[in-house]
Design a protein around this nucleic acid. Structure first.
Length: 337
DNA sequence: GCTGCATGATGAG
DNA sequence: TCATCCTGCAGCA
């Protein structure tokens, strides 16, 4: 799944492509037909992310176009493991993203797309047919967004949105961390981790502890912190956790900026040409970034995630993996204590 | 063509 | 801890 950085990028993309527009909302697949009808024709007036949750705020068309009304309904989306948004535009919008699940499809890379077909009457844009099981299609003046495979897709009230947010931990990417202040958000994270004997690795994946961290950022941030993922939270000193929060913030921020997760420092890249053969059929991190020129190559972006059996980029010790609460954990047993 | 996997979360036992 | 849900695609035969 997209981790927090991706969802924040998505929130921005929705503002760019659809902000202040009355949207046609449909469910080509049919499973969301009732929900779509609730907001169809309403105006997108807000687009927010909190951790991995995306909230699109809608209000009935306003008689006063100069004023942005508060949302009366929110579309809550959680992409889960497989969810993805695919965007198409009429070409008038410079950049389009296709953001979501860890896979690549034609038209799903983050690139500038050529203009779509011109309609039969000239200049009338005809969006492409929905491809696959499209739960929701949002259509604005110049773009469509198709959603497939979400874990959550529902229309909720402002009160229900508040209830969802109340269950989430602080999100480093939110301006105030989702708390009274960034400092309060960080201290809430530190305190919660230290309150429990559950391992640091498991707690980092707990969205009520810190929102937005997924399996890649977990593995990478713990490596960069030199912290053993299996160490009980209560045994990690507060300073280490504060530094961990700050590092996660930086990594997420870079992820938002570049659309890719890159955690390696320059001096630790380019050393993968080791004699260690890649096992055949080895699963690898799939979509991560846009392959832009100058971008860090995918096989040099990460320290430990999906690198089990390969030598640690820092000390050469083979990277280990282990199932932890149903998710694969990766770490260097020598660097992480 | 078929199978297993994936950057996730939830509910039951 | 397990089963389950959501979907597309890579890796096979």
């Amino acid at each position: 799944m997209p981790e927090g950085h991706t969802v924040h990028r998505l929130a921005r993309t929705f503002t760019d492509l659809f902000g202040h527009q009355a949207l046609d909302v449909t469910s080509p697949q049919g499973r969301f037909a009732a929900g779509a009808a609730l907001i169809c024709g309403h105006t997108l007036v807000a687009s927010e992310a909190w951790g991995k949750q995306l909230f699109l705020g809608f209000a009935p068309p306003s008689p006063s176009p100069t004023e942005t009304p508060d949302p009366t309904a929110w579309l809550r989306i959680h992409l889960g493991l497989y969810g993805a948004w695919t965007f198409s535009t009429d070409g008038s919008t410079a950049v389009v993203h296709a953001i979501g699940a860890p896979r690549r499809r034609i038209g799903e890379r983050e690139t500038t797309l050529p203009g779509q077909d011109v309609g039969p009457f000239g200049g009338v844009w005809v969006p492409p047919e929905p491809r696959g099981a499209v739960r929701v299609r949002l259509r604005g003046a110049h773009a469509v967004a198709d959603l497939t495979g979400p874990t959550a897709c529902e229309v909720i009230t402002p009160a229900e949105k508040a209830a969802v947010e109340a269950r989430l931990g602080p999100d480093p990417l939110r301006p105030d961390g989702g708390h009274a202040s960034v400092d309060a958000a960080r201290e809430a994270f530190v305190a919660k981790v230290r309150r429990s004997r559950v391992s640091a690795g498991q707690q980092l994946m707990d969205q009520s502890v810190i929102a937005g961290v997924g399996n890649i950022y977990r593995a990478e941030a713990l490596f960069r912190a030199g912290l053993d993922p299996l160490r009980p939270g209560r045994d990690v000193d507060a300073g280490t956790l504060r530094a961990l929060w700050d590092d996660v913030l930086g990594l997420l921020h870079d992820g938002v900026a570049h659309g890719a997760i890159v955690t390696t420092r320059p001096e630790h890249r380019g050393i993968d040409e080791s004699p260690v053969p890649q096992p055949p059929g080895r699963r690898r991190t799939r979509q991560n970034g846009d392959g832009a020129p100058g971008a860090v190559p995918e096989d040099q972006s990460l320290y430990v995630y999906h690198r089990d059996g390969l030598p640690c980029r820092v000390c050469g010790t083979p990277v280990l993996t282990k199932d932890l609460a149903g998710r694969s954990l990766y770490w260097c047993p020598a660097c992480q204590r």
